[in-house]
Simulated scan of single mutants.
Amino acid sequence: MTEIVMENLGKDFGDFTALAGMNLTIGDGEFVALLGPSGCGKSTTMNMIAGMLDPSHGEIRFDGRPMNGVPMARRGVGFVFQNYAIFTHMSVRENLAYGLRAQGVGRSEITRRVAEIAELLQLTPMLDRRAAGLSVNILQRLAIGRSAVVEPAIFLLDEPLSNVDAAFRAVMRSELKSLQRQFRQTMVYVTHDQLEAMTMADRIAVMDHGRLLQVGTPLEVYNHPADTFVARFIGAPGMNLLSGQVVSSDSGTQVDLGAAGRSGPVMAAQGGDVLFGFRPEEVQPDPAGPLAMQVSMVERIGARTILHLVTQGHEAKAVLDSETPTPGQGEVFRFSIPAASVRLFDAKTERAL
C-alpha cells in the first residue's frame, strides 16, 4: 500500500491551465474517485500521478518520497486505460502473464497468479483464446486483470467502464471494489459517472475547470455539497436550486421563493439573497404545503416517478414513489421540504452557507 500526497499540484499547457493548486492526500489502501465533467483536469491529475506528465508546479509524494521526475516504470503503478491496450495477437493467458514475465517472476508463481486473477474476473474458461476475438466487455476485464495481476502498490483506472454496456458496468463496479479490498491497493479512479463514484469510492474528489471543489465520502458530498456545482452534479436528478430571499416572519426565518411560496422555517445565519437547495427525493407531497409549482411533465420510471415542476422564475424536480398519487401535467403540485433537508447557498458566490 502507498499514500499519495499532492501538494499545490498544477499543470499548464502554454496559456491554458489544466490543473491549478491541487491539494489532496490519498491514504494507504484507499479508493478515491476523481469525479467531474470532461475537461475538468481529472485525467491530467492521474497522468501526473502515473508519471506520464510532469507537473508545472507543486509536488507529488508516495509515502513521503518525492516523485517529480521519477519515470513511470519506477513508480510501482498499474494503469488501466479507457481503450484497453490489449495485445490482440496473444491469448488471454499470455496477456495476463505479460507483466509478470517482464518482472522476472518464476513460472510456477506466474501460473498461480494468472489462475487466481482469471478466476476472480471470470476469465478462466477463455484463458487459451486469442484476445482478438473477444467482446468489448471481456477485453475490459482482461485489461483490468493484466494490471492487477502484478499487484502494484497504486492502481490507476482512467474511465475503464465508459465503453461497456450498462449491465456489465454494474457487474464490474462490484468486482473492482472486491479486487481492491482483496489486494488492499491504493486505487485512484477517474470517471464522469457519479454512480460509479458513489458506489465504489471511499472518498470522492469533485473537480471542475481544473480545480478541486470538494473531497468527502459519497454521503458527505451528496448531503452537504460545498457549492452549487457539486449540488447539481451529484445526484440523479441533481439538487434543485431556487432563487429566494431570507426573511423573518412570525413563523421564524423563512426563504421567500416568490411565485413558488415561502419555505417552512430554516436555519439561516444571514439574510439577503440565497439559493434554496433541496434534493428531488426529499420532496413531500402536502395538500397544505407552503410551496406550490405547476407540473410540466411526468416521467414514470419503474419504481419511481419524476415530476418536472415550473413556476415563474423557477424550475425543479420531485422524485416520488410510483405508488404515490401524483397530479397530471398542467396541474398544481403542493409540497413541503423537511427543514433538515434544506441547503442554502450564497446567491453571489454559490458557496454553501
Rank of each mutant, 00 (worst) to 15 (best):
V274K: 02
M198L: 11
L275S: 04
G258R: 11
Q194F: 04
T199M: 08
D208S: 13
A226T: 04
D193Q: 06
L179W: 00
M200K: 13
A269L: 05
M187W: 00
A260D: 04
M200N: 04
Y189A: 11
V206M: 09
D273E: 10
M207T: 03
P265C: 02
G252L: 03
L275E: 05
Q180T: 09
A269M: 06
D250C: 12
L195C: 03
Q185W: 04
L241F: 04
T186R: 09
T199V: 13
A153D: 08
F233D: 14
G258L: 09
F155E: 01
R173W: 10
K177W: 01
R279M: 03
L179P: 07
A226Q: 01
L242F: 12
R169K: 14
V247E: 15
D193H: 07
L219C: 00
A260Q: 08
R232M: 02
D208M: 08
N223S: 12
G261K: 10
A170I: 14
F233H: 05
D273L: 14
L257I: 08
V171I: 15
N240M: 05
D208P: 00
Q270C: 06
S178M: 07
R211K: 08
T186L: 13
L195F: 10
V230W: 03
T186M: 09
P218Y: 03
I204A: 09
V274A: 05
A170H: 13
Q214L: 13
A226M: 02
T217I: 01
F276H: 01
A269S: 08
M267L: 12
A197Y: 03
L242K: 05
P237V: 02
H192R: 05
E159C: 00
Q185S: 15
S243M: 10
S162Q: 12
A170Y: 03
A236L: 14
R173K: 13
D202H: 15
A153V: 01
V274D: 05
G271M: 08
S249N: 03
Y189E: 10
V246N: 07
G238Q: 10
Q185K: 12
L179F: 02
G238Y: 13
H209E: 12
E196K: 10
V221L: 06
R262K: 06
D256L: 12
A231N: 04
P237R: 11
G238C: 11
N223C: 01
V171S: 07
F278G: 03
A166H: 11
G252M: 08
F229R: 02
D202N: 12
S249E: 07
V190N: 12
L241M: 10
F155I: 05
F168E: 11
P218K: 04
V246M: 09
I204V: 11
D250H: 14
A269R: 12
F155H: 05
K177Y: 01
V206W: 09
L161G: 06
L176P: 09
T253P: 00
H224N: 15
V188P: 03
H209Q: 11
R211G: 03
Y222G: 07
A231R: 08
A260E: 14
G238R: 12
G235Q: 11
P265S: 06
A259D: 06
A260R: 13
G258V: 05
A197L: 07
A166F: 06
L176Y: 01
G235P: 01
G264A: 09
L275P: 00
Q245I: 02
N163H: 13
L157W: 07
